[in-house]
């Protein structure tokens, strides 16, 4: 199995440790991972703003970088959603269809494809609040949502439960969007920041020491709000916890 690692632009730039943890974690399970160095972005900023034409060349580049792999894995559900469900600015060739159907968010890949049942190296004796990105939750269906009447399930929680010593902190509005929303965070800055502050307040009230998520983008926004508010909360990507980060 040959896996192409996609490290989204903001992870590349601000959270290289998330990319490194994803790479090492996959390798721990014997997966052969390559990172095509000419990668940039999935096209989401343009697509989300409605500028499909402007996204086309970025999408083409993505497909060129990743078409040779059996799977494409990325530590971001919202980028996965872009590739799988919204990469429509370009002609749907066999290569495009292959890339779109083979792109997985890390938690999904571990849970559904590798069917991982243990992380013997992982120990995280802390109180942790889990945040699900909205695309990951409602479009990729990584967990059950409170809006629907359905059996509760959570793939990230199922994986985290295999980590020694971890304790979960419950939020009062677990499914509420944190207000990042991609370009929403800059175009609609006021509402975005208010939603972020409310999310941080909920996390604080839960008694969490750490917040974790399979999406760095939401956490970048939440962390920015938390720091400005002087909130004592730490943000860590789920890949790092599963890869055995201690704190």
């Amino acid at each position: 199995m040959k896996v192409g690692l996609f490290v989204p632009c903001y992870v590349d730039m601000f959270h290289p440790e998330t990319g490194i943890a994803t790479l090492e974690l996959l390798e721990r399970f014997g997966v052969s991972v390559e990172y095509p160095v000419d990668q940039t972005c999935c096209g989401q900023p343009m697509t989300n703003t409605g500028c499909e034409r402007e996204a086309a060349r970025t999408e083409e580049l993505f497909v060129r970088n990743f078409e040779k792999y059996d799977y494409i894995v990325t530590p971001s559900g919202s980028c996965t959603n872009q590739v799988r469900n919204n990469m429509t600015a370009i002609e749907q060739s066999d290569a495009v269809k292959h890339v779109r159907s083979r792109t997985y968010e890390l938690v999904e890949f571990l849970h559904d494809v590798l069917k991982v049942d243990a992380f013997p190296w992982a120990e995280f004796p802390h109180r942790v609040a889990l945040h699900n990105n909205c695309n990951t939750l409602r479009n990729l269906r990584i967990a059950s949502m409170t809006e629907r009447r359905e059996e509760p399930f959570s793939k990230p929680k199922a994986l985290l439960k295999m980590v020694k010593g971890i304790e979960f902190a419950d939020l009062t509005r677990p499914d509420e969007c944190c207000g990042f929303g991609g370009t929403f965070s800059v175009f609609e800055e006021g509402v975005s920041a208010k939603m972020g502050q409310d999310k941080v307040t909920d996390q604080l009230k839960s008694g969490a020491e750490y917040v974790t998520s399979s999406d760095s983008s939401c956490m970048m926004h939440q962390e920015g709000c938390a720091r400005r508010m002087g909130a004592n909360l730490k943000y860590i990507h789920i890949a790092q916890i599963l890869n055995g980060a201690r704190a």
């Binding site: 601000f14 959270h15 290289p16 490194i20 990172y35 800059v186 800055e189 970048m220 400005r228």
Partner: peptide, 27 residues
């Protein structure tokens, strides 16, 4: 994200610290 007359990100949020190297450089 910055191409805007005003840097709206930083009004109510801290800007993330930049690590010494990107993942790409590390790799």
């Amino acid at each position: 994200m910055l191409y805007n007359k005003l840097n709206t990100w930083g009004r109510k949020r801290d800007i993330p610290e930049t690590p010494k190297q990107t993942f790409n450089e590390w790799y």
